[in-house]
Amino acid sequence: MLGLTKKQRRNIKRTSLNILEWIFKLAVCVMFLFPFYWMVITSFKPYLETLQFPPTLWPETFTLSGYFTVFEELEVLRYIKNTLIVTGSVIVLQFLVNIPAAYAFAKWEYKGKGMMWAIVLATFMIPGQLTFMTIYYMFADWGILNSLLPQILPTIASAFSIFMLRQNFKQISDEVVEAARLDNASEWKILWRVMVPMAKSTVITTVLFSFIGHWNAYFWPLVMTRNEELKPITLAIDRLKSLEQGMNYTDIMAGNVILVLPVVILFLLASKKIIQAMAYRGMK
């Protein structure tokens, strides 16, 4: 290091720090991406190659047999339809329930508001595993176990969505709401024309989280469905484990690829909005 000026030394230090930073970032990426990569390549390997040791990092022979099993034998599209109906209905209903609820919690004053908010927060903390029995019996009483409703109804009011949206609505100044009231806008109009556009990122994020949650739902449909006709894709993919003797990794991974693909695509499309929602500070 002798003979170098202070500036040169500083530059070397900075460059080496940069390199270290990149190595670290790369390592984190590999840690997260490698399982996905492994899943995808395994889904294209023939059965015997999946058992080979040492494993191959790229399929020696490509096969679509896994996908054939998933689509033809498992008839996965039937289950995807169920999942789409459940997820779609939940998102639409959540939209109509949670957004107005969050607006009321953020901008209205009424009796019992604190109490109601406490209840919302409480449901946030109570896991579904605690309540599924009573809910199951309730739905049995109502006679709706033979429909998709048990998978839809319990999650319409989402504490998480209400919480996120309320926090965002609270950041919007009261004066904007008051200005809209003075502009003779109805509360409904204020909500959809003023508040929701200003909270766009959060709305998209909560919808996305809700989509991921319901697309991947496993426990709830597992206890709520007895009828094969009503099962979602997650339970169908799970069945691949026992469809033939032993674990056929080709089939299982092909099923998983189909399961996670929509979620990954959606996340890539909306990641910018999610970051915005988490870092939203409002316009001063």
């Binding site: 008051e178 200005a179 502009d183």
Partner: peptide
């Protein structure tokens, strides 16, 4: 408020 025939200008403008 919207039916009183008044208009208001706020301190922080409160524009949409």
């Amino acid at each position: 408020p919207g039916k009183r025939g008044i208009a208001m200008v706020f301190q922080n403008y409160a524009i949409y």
